[in-house]
Every structure is written in C-alpha cells, then in structure tokens.
C-alpha cells in the first residue's frame, strides 16, 4: 500500500507542486492549509511523513512542529520542513520558545529551503520513508 504523506502549506501552488511530486513518485498525498487543520489530519490519517511549511496563518509550522515533537503519541512521526525561511531562523525561533520555558524539541531531521527542484524533493522523501 502506498505511503501517506501530508503536505501542510498555506500556498495552494506549493501544495499542488508537492502533491504532484508525491503522486508521480508513488505516494498517497494529503493536504492541509494550516497547522490546525494539519494536526487534525495527522490524528485522523496517521501519515508516514509530514511536509511542513513554517510561515502559515492560524497555526504556524513552528508551533505545529513543537506540538508534534512534544506529544508522546506523535513524536516519532517523520517531519520534513519545506520553507522559504532558512533553517537557522527556524532553529532560532524554536530556541526562543524553549527559553520561554517550553520543552526543548529536537532539530528537524529533514529541512529543505524553497525553492526546491522536484527531483531533490522526491529524493529527500525517499530518504525519509523509502
């Protein structure tokens, strides 16, 4: 059975790009347009991988990533960040939240900065979940 990959991004063009890459490479794509909706779908669909944008309305990727990694039931879910902001900025904002007294979270295993070529994206997904 095809592996499920959830794409969380508020930009419909990015979702379309990512889901097309996923389909073309034999995965089953799912979509959510913000963190809130993403979390709902993760709980309902139990995907194998989440491809997560950082700057989104309603609930940002920073917040969703933190929720996933500090939730015992979800912390093993594989997460790939795909964002226009650099990895350093992402780590810095996570660190800031930790300094505010929240639980520390591990660095994301997979981080891709936009723009990304379809074959790089596909290769990274393959590396993550086979």
């Amino acid at each position: 059975m095809a592996k499920k990959v959830l794409v969380v991004d508020d930009d419909p063009d990015v979702r379309l790009f990512n889901t097309t890459v996923l389909e073309e490479n034999g995965y089953l794509p799912l979509e959510a347009e913000n963190g809130e909706e993403g979390l709902r779908m993760i709980r309902a669909e139990k995907p194998d991988l989440v491809i997560l944008d950082v700057l989104m309305p309603r609930q940002s990727g920073i917040r969703l990533y933190r929720e996933l990694k500090t939730n015992a039931a979800l912390k093993d879910l594989k997460v790939m960040i795909l964002s226009g902001i650099g990895q350093k900025t992402f780590l810095r904002s996570q660190q800031a939240l930790t300094e505010f007294g929240e639980n520390p979270v591990p660095e994301p295993e997979f981080y891709i900065e936009k723009p990304v070529d379809a074959d790089v994206l596909a290769a990274t997904i393959k590396k993550a979940i086979g």
Partner: peptide, 16 residues
C-alpha cells in the same frame, strides 16, 4: 526571500 518563494512557484509550475 521574496524571489525564493516566486522561484518555488516557477519550479512547481514547470514541473507540472
């Protein structure tokens, strides 16, 4: 940063 987002759209579009 602004251009990266646009480029991403262009790459996505040309892939499609």
């Amino acid at each position: 940063h602004g251009i990266k987002n646009i480029l991403h759209g262009l790459k996505g579009g040309s892939y499609l």
